[in-house]
């Protein structure tokens, strides 16, 4: 049995940060889930249920829930939601809240982007690229080490990196 009285009634504000306005409009119609690819998973992503947990303030339950990370980011839910709740954004906000609460949620790809500027090793496929008539290294941040330094310096000032600086290596 879930005790609604003892729930964190301000959770929605914590999670939604400044963009808190619209989530409370949700009237549980289920549109968001009805068009969601990841709702077909064995452990489905049920974004309506996540929105509900946010609104009811079920902190512990939400913190344990890994389904927000299943989102395919197609944003169909945001398009169709009759109340303009932006469930996709709520999903991202839940992920951010989870990473704030528990750093094991921080995606490793974040550290990769910090380190190389990219999620893929664009600088390591020179041979293939050359064979196609392309420059070995594409003109990205990977090619300009000075820029990468500035990029990292910029990100050093963000909360996520500041609070978890041990994870973010140059």
């Amino acid at each position: 049995m879930i005790d609604l009285t003892k729930a964190n009634h301000h959770l929605w504000k914590e999670i939604m940060e400044e963009d808190a306005g619209d989530i409370r409009r949700c009237f549980n119609c289920g549109t968001c889930v009805s068009g969601c690819p990841a709702a077909e998973a064995e452990t489905p992503l049920m974004i309506r249920r996540l929105v509900r947990m946010v609104l009811l303030g079920l902190e512990e339950k939400l913190l344990e829930d890994g389904t927000p990370w299943m989102c395919v980011t197609c944003t169909a839910c945001e398009e169709m939601c009759p109340m303009g709740v932006k469930p996709f954004e709520v999903g991202l906000a839940i992920r951010r809240w989870q990473t704030r609460k528990d750093e094991t949620y921080i995606p490793l790809s974040t550290t990769e982007v910090f380190q190389t500027g990219h999620t893929q090793p664009v600088e390591k496929v020179g041979e293939l690229r050359r064979s196609l008539g392309l420059p070995e290294i594409p003109p990205t941040i990977a090619k300009f080490t000075e820029l990468l330094k500035k990029f990292q310096a910029m990100l050093r000032e963000t909360e996520i990196v500041k609070n978890n600086d041990y994870m973010f290596k140059e």
Binding site: G30, S34, P44, A76
Partner: peptide, 25 residues
């Protein structure tokens, strides 16, 4: 009790509706 927004038109003219029925698609 489900709001439907996904409709697939099948080749015979039928329409497949995808919806979320309380706990599953």
């Amino acid at each position: 009790r489900a709001r439907v927004t996904t409709l697939y038109q099948e080749s015979d003219g039928d329409l497949t509706l995808r919806y979320f029925d309380e706990d599953r698609i």
